[in-house]
Structure formats: C-alpha cells, structure tokens
Design a protein around this nucleic acid. Structure first.
Lengths: 206, 206
DNA sequence: GTATGATTCAAACGAACGTTTGATGCCGCT
DNA sequence: AGCGGCATCAAACGTTCGTTTGAATCATAC
C-alpha cells in the first residue's frame, strides 16, 4: 500500500490514520492497519506498545504542526497592527485547511479529528486538551479584543459554534458534494472561504 | 437497568441508543447492550435480525418524530404570513433541542446522530438521506425565499454549515461545560438560542 | 387441559480481536 | 569472523465478537 521508502513506524501511522478515518478507532483493527501498511502484525505493539498509544501518536504527529501553524498565523496577523476579525478567523481555519490538503493523508486526519470529538473517551479528550488548550486560549483572547461588546460567556458559546462548524465542514460530513469539474483543493478552499464569511457574521451578531 | 415495564424490543433500543452514543457502533457490543437492557443475548437477533438492523431501528424510532415535528413547526411558522429567518431556524433547531431533552434517552440519540455523520458508512448514509432528504429540501426552499440575494450554491454551503454547527452543539462536543447551577434543560436551551442568533447572522452575511 | 405459536433461555459456533512469544534476519561494531 | 542489538517474522495466547441452535417457558385459543 504505502511506499516502501517510508519507515515501518511511518507506514503504520499513515495506514492507521486512513483506516481510523474510515472505520473509527474501534472499527479499524490492527490486522487491517498492518496489512495496509505492509508490515507485520506484531510491529504495532513493538513500535507503539498498544493500540491506544498508536491512536495518540496519530494525533500527535499532526497536531504539533497544526498548532504551531495556527499560532504563527495569529502572530503574523497581529504583527501589522490590529488584525481584523476575518484575519484571526483565517489564522484559525486556514492551517486546518492546509492540513486537509496535505498529500500524505491530511484529509484523512481531519476526519479522524472529527471522530475524536464524537468519542467522549476521557483519555483522548484529556490528551487533546493538553495539546490544544493553550492554542484555543490564545485565539479566545484575540477574539475577545476584537469583539469587546460580547460578554465572556457569549464569546465562548460562539467560538464553540465556530469550531463545531469548522470540524464538520473540513471533515466533509455535509451534503454538499464536490462538483466533477472542481478539484479537491478548490472545493476545500471554497469551504474555508464560506466558513470564514459565515463565522465572521455570526461572531459579529448583536 | 431499564424499567421492566418496557417491552423487550424497547429495552434493547433504549440500551443500544445509550451505548452507541457512548462507545460508537463498533465499540458497543451486543453483549453490553443486552446486559444493560436486561434481556437475553439472542433477543437482538430474534427481534431485529442483526446488529446492523438494530442500528437502523435506533435511528428510525427517533427520526420519524423529529422529521414530523420539524415539518409541523415549519408549516406553523409559514401559516401566519411570511415567517422570518429566526422562525424558520427555530423550526429546524427547536425540535432537535426538544428531542435532546426527552426523558427517555433523547440526549443520547443526538450524540448517536452526530456519530452517524462521522461514519461514512454507505448504508447508513443512504438510510439517512432517504429519511431526511425531503425535510432538508423543504427547509432549503424556505430559506431560499427568505434569502433571495444568495445564489443557490452559496445557500447550500451555508445550510451545510448550519447543520454542522447544530449537530456539534446539540451533541455537546464542545469545550463549554454546563455550570453547576444550570440545569441540563436550561443549558441546552441556551445553546439553541445562541445557535439561532449565530446562524441567522451567518446566513444574512452579504 | 392441551395444542400452538411466540418468546426467552443457556450454550455453543467459528471468526476476529489485541497482545505476547521465541526464533530468525539484519546491520554496525571490533 | 564473531558478537550484540534492533527489527521483523510466523505462530500462538486467551478473550470477545456476532450469530445460531434447540430446548424451555410463556400466552392464547379451542
């Protein structure tokens, strides 16, 4: 399945990402994963220790970069004076879009991320909040500065709605189907544009 | 677990709904379900034929009523003259809210519904589109009349975002935690209010 | 009261699961 | 050449999975 010039660990991570996206964490077996990765069944427990650890590594591999990109984009937006709402939204949304366009399984990962929300699994939520928490805080602060008329609770509600819409849209759960003449890249870029416009108006609501 | 005065079928459906919400379709076993329902393991295959059929029945039981309520609310909103955007949004969102407040597992079901989106399972998607399709069409028409400045494609994108945000918010995936002084009912009603305000502004965006 | 059909039951089916084992291959070292 | 360690391998571990079976139990009708 995956090219031979990737290491065993990388091939497992890639195959796991793809199969977790398609069948869920419980629904994808290590036998399916190792078969798709063209490695021995025992390799998962040798390199990762357990299936649970493998799941966490699938997240860590992508989230580290996603978080870094989001913070960098936010810093860049703030660098030239006060950023406007659309710029901050873009700093949050565009890195997720770019990730979803990554050649090596990025589009699978955004769907895995959406599944993580559906799993109320305590260990996974804790892991994600440890890796995500400070990023969300930074963005909440940026939004609070731009929307001073909103109370703190009101703001949190709206940001929650935004991340829900983002998760759902990037994971392609909706009914909108990509038209045959439109490339996957263009399709997702349009999704991001619509999302930013919609979210900006929603956040500005009185 | 479930009260004894419910029939075997109903007890299975209730327990399945709860466990599917908590562990997913693959993650919840029929042994867990039948133990929680206090029925024999073989009862699932006797009454439903298979696990897949049981999953579909879990959906059918709730969706029939959810769809009927949404259409009734839409008709009522249109009855007294032209409904405004908030009324049509409420006709879509409030029935989902009421369902989530249902004493007998409604809040579990909205989470099951969110899982259904994450599963790209072809059979399940087909089943849902068969049972959901005409309702979404009706609402799309109502929104189109209220937002004539939006092109058809633009409108569909935005409705997709709205249903994503709704699914996510009702399933309680976000970081917003219910405050200790606030009842579950109040918490969800506030979520619906925020959602309607946010979505109305987003849909009206130029 | 007994025959009939629907339901429930304990037990078992083969298949698939995550994990472990111990042997074998491979590579850089002295 | 021989050693030491990582890495890979086929095979097996015990457990759990969805499903099936055939007997026991229940309710209803005559």
């Amino acid at each position: 399945m995956l090219a031979q010039h990737f290491s065993t660990k990388e091939r497992i991570l890639g195959a796991a990402e793809d199969l977790f996206a398609r069948h869920g964490f419980a629904g994808a077996s290590l036998r399916q994963v190792t078969a798709a990765a063209n490695v021995n069944l025992a390799a998962v427990n040798y390199h990762f220790g357990s299936k649970e650890n493998l799941i966490e590594e699938v997240f860590r591999r992508r989230l580290d970069e996603l978080n870094a990109r989001r913070l960098a984009a936010l810093a860049a937006a703030n660098a030239d004076g006060q950023a406007d709402l659309e710029q901050v939204l873009a700093a949050f949304i565009r890195p997720a879009l770019e990730l979803s366009l990554d050649k090596n399984g990025g589009s699978a990962f955004v769907r895995v991320l959406a599944r993580a929300y559906a799993e109320h699994n305590a260990r996974l939520r804790r892991f994600l909040s440890d890796n995500y928490g400070h990023v969300l805080k930074e963005f909440a602060n940026a939004f609070a500065r731009l929307l001073p008329h909103l109370g703190k609770e009101e703001l949190y509600w709206r940001l929650d709605i935004v991340s829900g819409a983002l998760t759902y849209a990037m994971a392609d759960f909706g009914v909108i189907k990509r038209k045959s003449g439109v490339s996957e890249q263009t399709h997702r870029e349009r999704a991001a544009e619509h999302l930013i416009r919609f979210a900006a108006a929603g956040l500005r609501a009185p």
